[in-house]
Amino acid sequence: MRRPHIAVLNGPNLNMLGLRQPGIYGSATLDDVEQICIQAAERLDVGIDFRQTNIEGELVSWVQECRGRFDGIVINPAAYGHTSIALLDALLAVDLPVIEVHISNIHRREAFRHHTYVSQAAIGVICGLGVRGYAHALQAITDLIEDEG
């Protein structure tokens, strides 16, 4: 039986974790997040492809490339979650289970962050648990894949 493969995609400014607003996002870096995901993937016996971009079109292309190559997507769209209909359309087109992750609790922040387009394509949303939310998202997507398989 083939190991499930999960794309872990990250949007704009997440490369600035550890430097950007540590009172909101904490002191962990994107490298720390990747290590959390690698450890979770090993524990869950799944493969991951961890990526980050500041470019909306690149993120959309990565999502499109997931069709037929991955079994699920964990995505922290960052600000694009609140603005990108193109990202929503791509997620809907690939027909894969999606878990959306936000490090901060977007519902306790500015009103414009309360809505995300991505959540319309996501089976679940994890927010406010810091960088550990990624490990929870990987667990959830793995459970969903196993339940469907």
Rank of each mutant, 00 (worst) to 15 (best):
M1I: 09
R2S: 07
R2K: 07
R2H: 05
R3V: 02
P4E: 01
P4M: 01
H5W: 15
H5F: 08
I6V: 14
V8R: 11
L9H: 02
L9I: 00
P12T: 12
N13S: 01
N13P: 03
N13G: 00
L17D: 05
L19F: 07
L19W: 08
R20C: 01
R20M: 08
R20H: 10
Q21G: 02
P22R: 13
P22M: 11
G23D: 15
G23M: 12
I24C: 04
I24T: 15
I24Q: 12
Y25K: 10
A28E: 15
T29Y: 09
L30K: 14
L30S: 13
L30A: 15
D31Q: 13
D31Y: 09
D31N: 09
E34K: 15
C37Q: 05
Q39G: 11
A40T: 02
A41P: 00
E42V: 01
R43W: 07
V46I: 12
D49F: 14
F50W: 11
R51P: 01
Q52V: 09
Q52N: 13
T53N: 12
T53G: 03
I55D: 15
E56M: 10
G57N: 12
G57Y: 11
L59F: 15
W62Y: 06
C66P: 00
G68K: 11
F70V: 05
F70W: 10
D71Q: 15
G72L: 03
I73L: 02
V74W: 12
V74A: 13
N76Q: 11
P77Y: 04
A78D: 14
A79K: 03
Y80P: 05
G81S: 09
H82E: 14
S84A: 07
S84V: 13
S84W: 06
A86N: 01
D89S: 06
A90T: 00
A90N: 00
L92S: 04
A93V: 02
A93M: 13
V94T: 05
D95Q: 13
V98K: 08
E100Q: 04
V101P: 01
H102K: 07
H102L: 00
I103V: 06
S104Q: 09
S104P: 05
N105S: 05
H107I: 10
R108Y: 04
R109C: 04
E110A: 13
E110W: 10
E110Q: 13
F112T: 10
R113D: 03
H114M: 06
H115L: 04
H115I: 06
H115V: 03
H115W: 01
T116P: 06
T116H: 05
Y117Q: 08
V118I: 07
V118T: 09
V118C: 00
S119L: 03
Q120A: 11
Q120C: 10
A121L: 03
A122M: 06
A122D: 02
I123K: 14
V125L: 14
G128H: 05
L129H: 10
V131H: 14
R132D: 12
Y134D: 10
A135M: 04
Q139F: 04
A140L: 06
I141A: 03
T142I: 09
T142K: 11
L144N: 02
I145V: 13
E146C: 02
D147P: 05
